[in-house]
């Protein structure tokens, strides 16, 4: 597998020149149940540049949530490293880690489980300040007010209430407010909108875009819906059964997916257009058990273009064009250096 360190500066797009904020190298996360070992994440490497949004997309069970948790060391890595602004998070002492990881915050899928049902909204949002004893009570209250306002929650009516009194979308806003109170440089959003109605989903996605600009955040956005991921991300990494199968600029990925799995993911998106004709075949079958992953290419059991070689040899991640990496023996896109850079993406 080609680590990002091996291909420095080849990323296309506007964020290419920005310094690397987070570097993941050969990350492996194993779960043990009894004598069996399950690799939820098997040797993935990628980097996130300052100011960009990296999308992480895949089906349930592909290891995307585990990856997100490993980035903040909530889930310890079995091997490999996660370097945040040059510091290997796995090598920090407990004390240093406690301080350092406040700079990386998480937003979770279940808006209700992310908030303590017994605490008041103002205490929940003030928690990052309370933990570190930042500011006086009045200063904290003022900060909580302005943060709640910036996520669109009215501090006067909401502050004294408890999470049950809010809708899913509102809980998600409160969660975001809490995370931002820690003044993070990076926000990891783990399926932040998949439990919400499309109408609320749009509100939250817009809010995240606004806050990203206002606070200068770098984001990792994890979701199963490629349309959502593509909408918010500068680059998209596609995961399948613990492996990274494709990594590209999001518009580039949409225009010319190189991995059959990415193509299938696109075909599954329900486009709100009765005239829309999908050009790709939707995916059939289920994700194989990670206990016993297929040999060679892990996608071969569901791949419409499978060949003999796919079973015997694992495809490495390699570039099909600058900044566009794919792990497939027979990529849908020709392996040739594209002369001109792909169109620059806009945020």
């Amino acid at each position: 597998m080609t680590g990002p360190a091996a291909t420095p500066g080849t990323n296309a797009g506007s964020a290419a020149e920005a310094p690397v904020m987070l570097e993941v190298e050969h990350l492996v996360v194993e779960f043990r149940s009894g004598k069996e070992r399950v690799q939820a994440v098997s040797d993935i490497s990628f980097e996130v540049r300052t100011g960009e949004t990296l999308g992480l997309v895949g089906e349930s069970g592909c290891g995307k949530t585990t990856t997100g948790r490993a980035l903040v060391q909530v889930q310890p890595a079995t091997s490999g490293s996660v370097r945040f602004q040059g510091q290997d998070l796995g090598r920090l002492s407990k004390r240093e880690l406690r301080k350092t990881r406040t700079r990386i915050q998480m937003i979770f899928q279940d808006p209700i489980s992310s908030l303590n049902p017994r605490r008041r909204i103002r205490d929940i949002v003030a928690e990052p300040l309370a933990i570190w004893g930042t500011g006086s009570a009045e200063e904290r209250a003022a900060q909580v007010r302005s943060m709640l306002e910036s996520v669109g929650i009215d501090p006067d009516t909401a502050g004294d209430r408890r999470p049950q009194e809010f809708s899913g979308g509102q809980c998600q806003r409160i969660s975001i407010a809490r995370a931002l109170m820690a003044k993070p440089s990076m926000l990891i959003c783990d399926e932040p909108v998949s439990a919400l109605d499309v109408s609320v989903q749009a509100q939250i996605l817009n809010l995240l875009a606004d806050l990203k600009a206002a606070f200068g955040l770098t984001m990792v956005f994890i979701a199963h819906d490629l349309a959502v991921v593509k909408n918010v991300s500068d680059r998209v990494a596609v995961m399948y059964l613990g492996k990274l199968v494709e990594l590209a600029d999001s518009d580039d990925l949409y225009r010319s997916p190189a991995h059959p799995y990415t193509e299938a993911l696109m075909a599954s998106i329900p486009e709100p257009d009765p005239e829309h004709v999908s050009t790709h075949e939707p995916l059939t079958g289920e994700l194989p058990s990670p206990l016993n992953p297929p040999s060679g290419c892990r996608f071969r059991t569901r791949c419409p273009y499978v060949q003999d070689r796919c079973a015997s040899e694992e495809p490495p991640l390699r570039e099909v064009s600058p900044g566009h990496q794919v792990a497939c023996h027979f990529p849908l896109r020709q392996l040739s250096p594209v002369p001109e850079r792909p169109a620059a993406t806009t945020v």
Partner: peptide
């Protein structure tokens, strides 16, 4: 409702037209 759905064909970073409120 139609406009609040992100579309694959829109360029990345396209702002969604969300309906405010509930």
């Amino acid at each position: 409702l139609m406009d609040s759905i992100p579309r694959l064909s829109d360029p990345s970073g396209t702002r969604l037209r969300a309906i405010g409120g509930r």
